[in-house]
Design a binder for these strands. Structure first.
Length: 173
DNA sequence: ATTGTGATTGTTCAC
DNA sequence: GTGAACAATCACAAT
């Protein structure tokens, strides 16, 4: 096994603006089949934690701000999406990592919320009155309680052997 | 009044 | 392994 690392791989997505991403409507339940648990009846779960935003979404949040700042008259959400997506691919892997780190943290928080959410669900499983249990709904956080915000601004870019960003123009022509 | 739609990518879950 | 669904956002259309 040799580490075949002769040719430099060029991300095709960079060459191509965007694939014919016929996203179509991934919304609106394409196939509401009871077989899929996902298509289960959308219960009204006010406490249900939504999925944590991926690195791209975290980046988008900030990007939207910038985009709107320069395009205050743009009202198309798609405009930001397209612009954001394009820039996202144009961003350096190191830059993405910055948002990825945030996304990971967000995910950790998501699990925590799920913990509380699951408890509540179990507590008011068959009890139609889920709101009445609000008094007894007490989350026992053995772990950090509220100290979820830790200012750790560590930007260690010690790329040991990660060939993330090496511009070795190795034209293997 | 409420809810879907359009567009992006990443992540997640079910089969 | 694949694929479909869903996460935010915002103004507007439709019911």
């Amino acid at each position: 096994m040799t580490k075949g690392k002769g040719t430099v791989r060029i991300p095709k997505e960079v060459l191509k603006a965007v694939d014919d991403r016929k996203v179509g409507k991934r919304k609106a339940a394409a196939k509401p089949d009871k077989s899929s648990a996902r298509s289960k009846k959308a219960k009204k779960d006010p406490n249900k934690p939504k999925r944590p935003p991926s690195a791209f979404f975290v980046f988008l949040e900030e990007f939207r701000k910038t985009f709107k700042a320069e395009n205050p008259h743009v009202k198309a959400v798609s405009a930001v999406g397209k612009a954001g997506g394009e820039k996202w691919k144009s961003m350096s892997p190191a830059e993405k990592a910055t948002y990825e780190a945030k996304a990971q943290k967000r995910k950790a928080d998501y699990e925590k919320q799920m913990n509380a959410y699951n408890k509540k669900q179990a507590s008011s499983a068959d009890d139609g009155d889920e709101e009445s249990d609000k008094s007894k709904s007490e989350v026992h956080d053995d772990e950090e309680e509220g100290s979820a915000e830790e200012d750790h601004q560590e930007e260690d870019e010690d790329d040991d052997d990660d060939e993330g960003e090496d511009e070795n123009d190795d034209d293997d022509d």
